[in-house]
Amino acid sequence: MPPSPSLPHALVTGASSGIGTDIAREYARRGKPLVLTARRLDRLEALAAELGKQVPCTVLAADLADPAAPEALFAQTLGRGIFVDTLVNNAGFGVPGRYLSADWKTHADSIQVLLTSVAHLTHLYLPAMEAAGRGRILNVASLAGLVPATAGHTLYGATKAWLIRFSETLDQESRGRGVYVTALCPGMTYTEFHDVNGMREKVSKLPKGIWLTSAEVARQGVEAVESGRVRLVTGRSNKLIAGLSKYLPDALARALLASKAKDFRDAD
C-alpha cells in the first residue's frame, strides 16, 4: 500500500526487531499508517512489505547513534508531507559488563540512542502534535528504571530511569494540549536484544513465568498510550518486583536484587 501523506502516521524507532516490530504490527492492526525506522534497511523493507497490505508504510533507515539522525528523520517526514501524531521511541542499545569494560565511544553511542535521540525527536515532533491538539508519545523504558541499581550494564538502568521521569513530566506539560505520553516498562521480554548483547545464556536460566512475548508487551504498550496511561509495568511478576522495590527499605531492596543480578547481568 503506497504512503498517504495526508493521514496521521505513527513513527516507530527500532522497528526492525523485537518490541518495535510488534508495536508497528499492533498499530497496523488498528489501521494506523506507519513510518518505520531503524539501521537495518532489509528488515524494515520486509516489515513494510508485510504491513503494507494493511496500512501505508514509509521506510526511513537511520542510525540514532548519529547525532544528526533525528534532524534528518524529521526533515524527511516533513519533506514528504507526513504528519506524525504518534511517536514511538523504542530504539535500544545494551552495553554488557562493568562500566570500564567498554570504551567511551560505545557508552556515548548508548547515551545518544537511549537518551539524547529520544529528547531530540520529541522536541522535533511535539510542536505539531500540540498545534493539532492531539498526539501520542510512547517511550519504551524498562523495569530496570524502577528497581535498585545492580552491577553491570551501568548506563542502561540510569537512562531508563531518566526516560520514565522525562515521560511523566512531559505528560503533565502536554496532556492539556491533547498529547498523552506513556513510559512503557517491560521486564524480561522474548526478543533478540539478549542475543545482541551476549546475555542469552544467562537470562535463559531465569524462570519462564517472568517472561512476556514482545507481541504482548507491544499490545499493552499501545493500549496504555492510547488510553492515556502515564506509566505501565507489564506482567504480574514485574509489577510485584516494582512494588517491592518501592516499598522495601532501600538497603534491603538493593541487597535482594544484587543477590540475583548475576542471573541476568554481566558485571565482569
Rank of each mutant, 00 (worst) to 15 (best):
Y156G: 06
V12I: 15
L244H: 11
I82L: 06
L206T: 09
L206W: 04
T122C: 07
V179M: 00
K260P: 02
T213N: 04
V35N: 10
V113K: 09
R134T: 00
G176C: 09
Q220M: 13
G135M: 01
I23Y: 01
L206Q: 03
S214M: 04
S101R: 12
V217Y: 08
Y125H: 12
R40P: 02
L206S: 04
T234W: 00
Y99P: 01
Q76A: 15
I111C: 08
D250F: 09
I111N: 08
S142K: 01
R30H: 14
L138H: 07
P148M: 04
S214V: 02
R39T: 10
P70C: 06
R43H: 04
E223Q: 14
S259K: 13
V225I: 02
A38F: 04
E50S: 07
G152I: 00
E45R: 14
T77K: 07
A69Y: 09
P67S: 13
T86W: 10
D109P: 09
L240K: 09
S237M: 12
G187F: 05
T150Q: 14
A15L: 09
A144C: 11
A253E: 06
D42S: 05
A75F: 11
W162I: 01
V203Q: 01
G152K: 08
K32H: 10
L138Q: 08
I241W: 06
H153L: 07
P148R: 00
L163K: 08
A151I: 00
A183R: 00
A108C: 04
T77F: 12
R200Q: 13
P8N: 07
A46F: 00
H107S: 11
S204H: 03
V147H: 00
D85Y: 09
L138F: 04
Q54S: 14
Y156S: 01
V95M: 10
D109F: 11
A258W: 01
V147W: 01
V88H: 11
P5M: 13
Q112K: 05
G198M: 10
T150D: 07
Y125I: 11
R29W: 10
P70D: 03
S237K: 05
L184I: 06
S227N: 11
R165H: 14
G187K: 03
V196K: 10
